[in-house]
Amino acid sequence: MRKIFTEDEVNLDSLQAHFLDSGFTIENPKNSSFGVRSVDGLYIVIRLDEQKKYVGFYCYFDLDKLLLVQRYNYDLFLACFSLGKDENDLVVSYVMSYELGLIAGQMMHVFRRFSGLLDSLIQHENEDKFIVFGHPDENADDATSETEVPVTIPNGDLLQ
């Protein structure tokens, strides 16, 4: 049976439940986000913005070169590549609207494509080892703290 969340049903609990039902383990649940691991073990943050009606997928890498960000934005499909607050982090993001509802299977398909893109990025596009693994919150002791990383979404808004 195909699950479709109405706009009112989309919340952190329903997203976490769906990711659990899809075989993922929830890590670091917070007020507006939680983490999951890709097939190859990359830590991906799922963030819900209830005001703007977005579900976002984010992955953070330590980064050595700005040119890499520009090349990835040009060459790779689906994700947006930007620099984090300290300009040493590569933020990889994808946001999708749920304003009129959310088809759960479509969300999981997009998530799997996003995580597959990240896995491929590490395996095939990182010959110079500019990208290293890690996320600022991945091993944080305080599970309620949120690291705010400003990310520009495709329409130009700043996602907090």
Rank of each mutant, 00 (worst) to 15 (best):
L67H: 10
S33Q: 04
L78S: 11
Q70A: 11
R112K: 07
N28C: 10
L68R: 13
M107G: 06
D64Q: 14
L121I: 03
S38R: 06
L20G: 02
G116L: 07
E27M: 07
F77T: 02
G84K: 01
H124G: 10
L20R: 13
Y94G: 03
G23M: 05
F77K: 12
C80A: 03
F130W: 15
D64V: 04
V36G: 07
K52M: 11
D75I: 03
S32L: 09
L78K: 05
L118T: 07
K52S: 11
M96I: 13
G84L: 02
N31K: 05
L67A: 14
S97L: 06
N126H: 10
N73T: 08
H18E: 14
M96C: 14
A17P: 00
L15Q: 02
F34T: 05
L76K: 07
A17E: 14
M96G: 11
V95P: 00
D62R: 09
K85E: 08
N73F: 12
L76H: 01
Q123W: 11
H124I: 03
R113G: 03
E125F: 15
L68K: 15
D89C: 02
F34P: 05
I122Q: 06
D128I: 06
V110D: 12
D128E: 15
G35Y: 06
C80K: 08
I131T: 01
D89R: 12
D75L: 10
L67C: 07
L78C: 01
S32V: 10
L15S: 02
F24P: 03
I122P: 01
L90T: 00
L117A: 09
